[in-house]
Design a protein around this nucleic acid. Structure first.
Lengths: 156, 156
DNA sequence: CTTTATTATATAGATACCTATCTAATAGAT
DNA sequence: ATCTATTAGATAGGTATCTATATAATAAAG
């Protein structure tokens, strides 16, 4: 049951627009995670899907640290996510020949298969969202959100 | 150290705009939480601040279920957040005279004080973000994001 | 009235995320 | 060569979030 569908926005009248934007972003992030994970096969989470998708699109192996940087999360977070993918057999670890501290993460066949399945699961949902927001210029909104993210990131 | 500031967007070339938007939203939500919590007094989290702010702006007490609905999170999540606020002395529980199952959550003086401090802490950050994104029409973006959230919420 | 259904909140068990810290291995400096 | 600094990753402890379930109290039905 939707809880907010009858309200103009998630904020209160006095809030500045950007504050409301941040509130919406927080709610959307949570709702989207829930929707995706409800539909994703094999108990994949969005974090786990993100890693598989990232590596497969790059067509490359990466270290845990590199993946953490690319996904914009802390290294221990990525250690944990990769560990779960490993337990499920979706990635394997390739030792570095020159530096024994390093683990190269490689997607397995099973990992590729589950990711392809996940992509197919997501596509109709994305189409649904796009149809549900006619007239929205997502390319333009993307540009602004990217600018916002860069400023926010630089502030840290 | 920013990790993404040198990239056009957080997605990959083949991704549809709306997919990239969702990716940005996820990253922004995390970055914003971190920034705010780093600056907030008294170890307040964004979730905890959100509850105090919500109740104080409404100028009303609400039950845990009502707050959960308003903040768009599951009821056990709100039980947990409210519990932490109670441990810190920022809210108190007012028993319902007619229904002994119900807890009315009321912000204490200390809660109001910490929220006022938090608001003052946030304002410059918001101004910084706004200045860092000149020309962005946040009112318009808010409208689109709200539509997106409503569609997403209705899908659940 | 007693039994059943509903409702409000709490508890249990996961995952994701963080910061702080530890270990192991490599690199640098003297 | 040895001592120190840096780096990759793992571990510990904490909050937020979810779903599923338990508990308690009210409401509805018989």
């Amino acid at each position: 049951m939707p809880k907010y569908a009858d309200k103009a926005d998630a904020g209160l009248p006095g809030d500045p627009a950007l504050f409301k934007v941040m509130t919406e972003i927080s709610i959307i992030a949570n709702l989207a995670d829930r929707e995706f994970e409800r539909r994703m096969p094999g108990g994949l989470t969005t974090a786990q899907f993100g890693v598989l998708n990232h590596l497969l699109r790059l067509k490359a192996q990466q270290t845990i640290g590199e993946i953490a940087g690319a996904m914009q999360v802390a290294q221990p977070t990525m250690s944990s996510t990769v560990k779960r993918l490993h337990e499920k057999g979706y990635v394997e670890f390739v030792p570095d020949t020159k530096d024994r501290r390093v683990k190269h993460v490689k997607v397995t066949r099973a990992g590729r298969a589950i990711r392809d399945k996940a992509v197919k699961t997501i596509e109709p949902g994305l189409a649904y969202l796009k149809e549900g927001t006619p007239g929205a210029d997502w390319d333009k909104i993307l540009k602004e959100l990217t600018r916002l993210r860069i400023v926010l990131d630089a502030a840290g």
